[in-house]
């Protein structure tokens, strides 16, 4: 899907990077934990998140996300949008929740940028 189709599908507002709406997206990574985005997101994937601070744009630039899709109807602060224009990262915002957003994209052919974690996975001590 191209970003414009994603925006239409999710009734999303385009908040930055209007000129990149023709970019094709094949994979996605959903997370509210930016360390997980750094650890697992792959180049070209769209980042789906509920966070809105400028960090999301810097992280997207580091891991070469094709765009950021903000869920739950959140609108990021101006700093985030300005930085996104500066670093050339499109931002879309949809009112759908993270689960619905991910499910709707998956139903339309977007897959996870990885399927599952290799190795033993995270162990969180009590």
């Amino acid at each position: 899907m191209i970003l414009r189709e994603i925006a239409d599908l999710l009734d999303a507002k385009v908040l930055a990077g209007e000129k990149h709406l023709g970019v094709e997206v094949k994979t996605a990574f959903s997370a509210d934990l930016m360390s997980d985005v750094l650890a697992f997101a792959k180049p070209g994937s769209i980042m789906i998140t509920g966070l809105t601070n400028p960090q999301i744009v810097r992280i997207a630039s580091i891991v070469d996300n094709s765009a950021i899709l903000i869920v739950r109807g959140k609108i990021p602060p101006d700093e985030t949008i300005t930085l996104a224009e500066e670093l050339d990262i499109p931002i879309l915002s949809t009112k759908y929740i993270l689960f619905e957003t991910s499910g709707r994209l998956y139903a339309n052919g977007i897959v996870g940028c990885i399927r599952k974690i290799e190795g033993p996975g995270s162990v969180v001590p009590l």
């Binding site: 930016m34 360390s35 960090q55 995270s122 001590p125």
Partner: peptide
């Protein structure tokens, strides 16, 4: 998973011990 992070760090999407 081990972390000594405070709320400010966590709000930013970090501090989960990764």
């Amino acid at each position: 998973g081990y972390s000594t992070a405070n709320d400010r760090i966590r709000e930013m999407g970090f501090g989960a011990g990764m």
